[in-house]
Each structure stands twice: as C-alpha cells, then as structure tokens.
C-alpha cells in the first residue's frame, strides 16, 4: 500500500510539473504572443485614451482667447491647492469694472490628476491633456501658467 502511494505521488508530481513546463514551452515557441510594447520606439503610434489625465491645460482659440472667467471654482475644488488664480480688475469699454484672470497658475508637481477641477469648472475653460513624459530636471518647470500672455476671455462666456 505504501509503495503504491509512494509511486503514485511521484507520478502525479512529474505530471503536474510537465503540465507547467508545457505552458511555458508553449509561450516559448509562440513568439507572436509577446505583449511587450517597445516604448520609446513606438512614440509615433502610441495614442493615449481620450480621457487620459495627463495635465491640466487651458485651450485657447486662434484669436488667443480662452474661456476662463476667473470664478475660482477649480481652485476651491482642488484638494491639494494645485491651482492658484490671480485676478485683476479690467475696465470695459462702457466704463464697467470686470474681474478677469491675470494668471492661472498650475502646480503640476502637486497635482494628483483627480479631475475634480475639470468637473467643477462652470465654463469648460480647462481640460485634461493626454500628454505624458512630464519629467524635468528643475522643479520650477512644473509650475505652469496656463493662460497665454495677452490672452483675452472669449466673447459671450460669463
């Protein structure tokens, strides 16, 4: 009885080991199953998903106009204090004073890319860009001013 058990143990062990080797052997002979993406080489074809959160950007149209009203909803919504909006008073043509953004400061190094600022924005002024490769040598480079110099707010955005 003992002998029978002894040899059946050996038989089952060898069989289970060979099953495993069959699987790795299968992948060794089927090189078309390789999943590796050769990253720096496939930059040209690499496309991130539409909703991928890379960094916050402020789109401008061809007249250098953005949609940010300076309401600071994003600044309040941000859990990390990533966004800082500096506003200025602008005197319009009809003599009224209006709040406008002076600079929209975005600290990329603090950002957790949680998308809450984008959701909070009432005028769709900021969006997530699909960029990656954000590594830089100087931390200061990660502090970004999102509005272009001399940019204006788009007509009709309140």
């Amino acid at each position: 009885m003992f002998i029978k058990e002894y040899f059946s143990t050996i038989y089952r062990s060898i069989k289970s080991l060979l099953t495993g080797m069959k699987l790795t052997g299968y992948y060794f002979t089927h090189l078309n199953k390789i999943k590796t993406e050769e990253y720096p080489d496939n930059r040209a074809t690499l496309k991130m998903a539409d909703r991928f959160r890379g960094e916050v950007v402020m789109p401008h149209n061809e007249n250098n106009e953005h949609r940010c009203t300076g309401c600071q909803a994003c600044e309040i919504a941000c859990p990390n204090g990533t966004i800082k909006i500096i506003t200025k008073q602008e005197i319009l043509a009809d003599g009224k004073k209006k709040k406008r953004i002076d600079s929209f400061i975005y600290h990329h190094d603090l950002c957790t890319l949680c998308n809450l600022c984008i959701v909070a924005c009432p005028s769709d002024a900021i969006v997530m860009a699909q960029t990656f490769e954000h590594a830089v040598y100087d931390k200061k480079l990660l502090k970004k001013i999102l509005n272009n110099p001399d940019s204006k707010i788009m007509e009709g955005v309140e």
């Binding site: 052997g25 060794f28 390789i34 999943k35």
Partner: peptide, 10 residues
C-alpha cells in the same frame, strides 16, 4: 532571452 520568451516579453 529564454526567460523573456517564456514570460511573453522580449
């Protein structure tokens, strides 16, 4: 290389 091919890598 053998390890990589068995592990669906390059």
């Amino acid at each position: 290389r053998v390890a990589a091919f068995m592990q669906i890598r390059l």
